[in-house]
Design a binder for these strands. Structure first.
Length: 803
DNA sequence: AACCAGGCTTC
DNA sequence: GACGTGCCTGGTT
């Protein structure tokens, strides 16, 4: 019997039943039931674009296409339709068939027919095609006529329905009470004495879990046998039945490891909502757990440029989830030691628990944004994080194109063609006091809108400009864009901005601590991210709407803009310290800065605003590297070794400390003294070898390397010693004493006696370069660091004496 | 000195 | 599973 249900969409997939495709929508009804909705009526299709000169023969071409029909997947329909392509009216044939996989075959055959310029939209995956065409978005609620089926059909949900009507949206995301979702965070610890863990050898010793019901659990291996732990993991998921599973780097570590480990042990990783389906690595490198949304939080952290160190503990600290000082920390290569010693196991347990708590905490911080990103782009939550920014925008554009009756261009192979980018000023080196950082808001999108930039608005023949009421001409490069009518990107961008304004207007009516406010805030951020991706997208060779000249024009206008602003700033008498792309560092003179902002807004027609103020900021001669002291006393390190993972712990620690001493106290002597003390300790063997290990990832097989970089040589040594080494493994090495090249003196850290370590190497190639990056500016020489002698007084005195 | 290749998260 | 890039290092020529 037909009935009507209201549900929130989680995900879509499809299966072939008999010979027919069935769309599967995974959802939660508004009263909290997990359901599957099947649509057996939808069919895959694509378009054959007719060459302009063959438009009169369109019907004939449609029948020719129909004759290609194969029995295994017949062509159900071949119909001439009016579409647009890059803004121009075009005729196309819409070709509908039965089996999604055969679309690819038909695409090739159709392309060969005379009068067919190209096959289009044949590579849009069937499950996505359905939600695009039906205008369905994840985390939105719909009402639809359905019929309940009698059997579960192997779906682990409370009810399975056949869709018989058309889903219609029932409400805006925040105006109704959406069902609550069950969330599970998990993390695994692996026992690996020999470099990177290897699933065919190393057991999973702890699986830590935390769920949205407040349960926390540690599943432990029985000694070195992880069979029961993995089985209990499967049981936990099946019992708790999460809608969302989160982890940290889980798409690239935890899940692949568990999948391989389970296979090795002959255990079925039966954790999905589809009987018989196990988790698999799928598009965009995400791990698909059918019926559940598997989210790797690291995907979102990666994109947060303000966070330099992306380790779980650093990120948790930065986001206020968990303080490093209040949790257990164990260097991961020491995990075996904590497992082998039963007394230390308690500490390891606590570490595993802290990790999963931190992961769950991150989910609370990051999921609201991820959910909005999914809701705005229409891409299911498990994929949207794993895909790059370019793909997210592209799915948004595909939906926009569908609404505008525009055909989606194909992704085509192109050769890389680079173009000139942004302006980066050479910094004024040294310490500057009271510096304001000004940022253009959404500089590139603003340029694209203002000058109507896009692949469909670019004008090749200058004489055509008059047809469009003139053209905007980009400086330096001379590319022309019609003034009117607005193109695809301008329409999409203006719409994104309009939507964002609406969201922000709604926020003004709400209390900042209401849940709705949070939802809107994340939504406006998602809209902003998409707008900001539009320029980079046009310059991306794999983009469907690729337009190199467009990207080139945008950066040319950008350079022009910032250079004009700098010019004006200097005319005002403002000291310009540094500038990069859309940001300007100037000595903070309130009145003059106000005038500069007014000039940019009134005369240039762009928005610029104060981003931050540094009490002190230090530059070397290098671009994109600086250390700043913020007004609240925090130190901002950008670009330096201290924030890179491929330097030894000691070098990073020392550089950070030196930066802090110099900025906070200005006392170079103190910094020198500190370094000398570190060098002394190093020479006297007081520094543990673990602080000297340099970690680098092997990105390909050892044989594929042309030159033996140190980590490659170390990896080779590991392999020779019988350890399995494969791409993706992190190699930890130290340099030992000797006359040979550095590479040839690189050994896996665990194969080296501390006495063999080449202390001189660490002084000359790690500590000294790291600190000299900062101290050479103050006239400090390498020798001063290594030799005991009288130092300077304060560096402020030092400059005073120079002046 | 000029150039190239490789890295930049997770246990 | 990658919008772009820059910048550094170690190694080779």
């Amino acid at each position: 019997m037909p009935e009507t249900i209201e549900f929130m969409l989680l995900d879509s997939s499809y299966e072939i039943v008999g010979k027919e495709p069935v769309i599967i929508l995974w959802g939660i009804t508004l009263n909290g039931e997990r359901v599957v909705l099947l649509d057996k009526r939808f069919r895959p299709y694509f378009y054959a674009l007719i060459s302009p000169s063959y438009e009169a023969k369109a019907e004939y071409i449609a029948s020719a296409i129909k004759r290609l029909s194969m029995a295994k997947s017949p062509i159900i329909e071949s119909r001439v339709v009016d579409k647009k392509y890059f803004g121009r009216p075009r005729k196309a044939v819409r070709v509908t068939t039965m089996v999604p996989e055969t679309v690819r075959e038909y695409r090739e055959a159709v392309k060969k027919i005379e009068g067919v310029e190209d096959s289009l939209e044949a590579d849009i995956r069937f499950a996505m095609r359905y939600i695009i065409d039906k205008k369905l978005y994840p985390f939105m609620a719909y009402r639809v006529a359905v019929e309940e089926t009698e059997h579960s059909q192997g779906f682990r949900v409370s009810k399975v329905f056949n869709i018989v009507g058309e889903p219609i949206p029932i409400a805006d995301i925040t105006s109704i009470e959406l069902p609550e979702m069950r969330i599970l965070a998990f993390d695994i610890e692996v026992y690996s004495k020999k470099g990177s863990p290897n699933p065919s050898r190393d057991p999973v010793i702890i699986i830590s879990l935390k769920d949205s019901n407040g349960n926390e659990k540690l599943l432990e291996a029985d000694g070195y046998n992880d069979r029961s732990a993995i089985r209990e993991f499967v049981d936990y998921i099946r019992n708790f039945d999460p809608d969302i599973i989160v982890g940290y780097n889980s798409n690239h570590f935890d899940w692949p490891y568990l999948i391989k480990r389970a296979r090795r042990l002959g255990i079925k990783l039966d954790v999905t909502r589809r009987v018989g389906a196990e988790p698999t690595t799928s598009v965009y490198g995400h791990v698909s757990v059918q019926g559940r949304l598997n989210v790797d939080l690291y995907d979102y952290v990666k994109e947060m440029h303000e966070i330099k160190m992306k380790t779980l503990e650093e990120v948790a600290e930065y986001l206020g989830v968990m303080k490093k000082s209040e949790r257990v920390l164990i260097e991961w290569w020491r995990i075996p030691e904590y497992w082998d010693d039963k007394k230390k196991r308690t500490v390891l347990r606590r570490y595993a628990l802290d990790d999963v708590r931190a992961t769950y905490g991150l989910a609370e911080k990051l999921l609201p944004f991820a959910i909005q990103l999914s809701a705005v782009t229409g891409v299911p939550l498990d994929q949207v994080g794993a895909m790059g920014v370019g793909f997210r925008l592209e799915w948004y554009l595909i939906r926009a194109a569908y609404d505008m009756n525009e055909l989606v261009p194909n992704r085509v192979k192109r050769y890389e063609e680079s173009y000139k980018g942004a302006v980066v000023l050479k910094p004024l080196k040294g310490i500057h006091e009271n510096v304001v950082v000004l940022d253009f808001s959404s500089m590139y999108p603003s340029i694209m809108i203002k000058y109507n930039v896009g692949p469909d608005t670019i004008v090749d023949d200058p004489s055509e400009c008059e047809k469009y009421g003139g053209c905007y001409v980009a400086p330096e490069v001379g590319h022309r864009f019609r003034r009117a009518p607005p193109g695809f990107f301008k329409i999409v961008l203006e719409n994104l901005i309009k939507l964002r304004k609406q969201v922000r207007a709604k926020m003004k009516e709400l209390s900042p601590d209401s849940p709705e406010y949070r939802v809107y805030d994340e939504r406006q951020k998602a809209l902003k991210v998409l707008a900001n991706a539009s320029y980079g997208y046009m310059g991306w060779t794999h983009a469907r709407w690729y337009c190199r000249r467009c990207a080139e024009a945008v950066t040319a206008w950008g350079r022009n803009l910032i250079l004009t602003a700098i010019d004006y700033a200097r005319k005002l008498g403002l000291k310009v310290i540094y500038g990069d792309t859309d940001s300007l560092f100037v000595a903070y003179d309130k009145e003059k800065v106000k005038k500069l902002i007014e000039f940019v807004e009134k005369e240039l027609g762009f928005e610029i605003k104060i981003d931050k103020i540094y009490r002190r900021v230090f530059f070397t001669e290098a671009k994109k590297r600086y250390v700043g002291l913020l007004e609240d006393g925090r130190i901002d390190i950008v670009g330096f070794e201290a924030v890179r993972g491929d330097w030894c712990e000691l070098a990073k620690e020392v550089q950070e400390r030196v930066a802090e001493i110099v900025l906070k106290t200005g006392d170079v002597d103190k910094a020198i003294e500190y370094i000398r003390d570190v060098i002394r300790k190093l020479k006297e063997g007081e520094i543990p070898i673990t602080k000297l290990v340099i970690w680098k990832t092997l990105t390909k097989r050892i044989e594929e390397y042309e030159h033996g970089a140190p980590h490659v040589v170390a990896a080779k040594r590991m392999r020779d010693a019988g350890y399995e080494v494969s791409p993706g493994d992190k190699i930890g090495y130290v340099i030992v004493k000797g006359r040979d090249s550095i590479s040839n003196r690189a050994y896996p850290y665990f194969m080296v006696e501390p006495s063999r370590v080449d202390i001189e190497y660490y002084i000359d190639h790690q500590i000294v370069p790291a600190v000299m990056r900062i101290l050479s500016y103050f006239g400090v020489t390498e020798r001063q660091l290594k030799v005991v002698s009288a130092g300077y007084r304060s560096l402020f005195d030092f400059f005073a004496s120079k002046a």
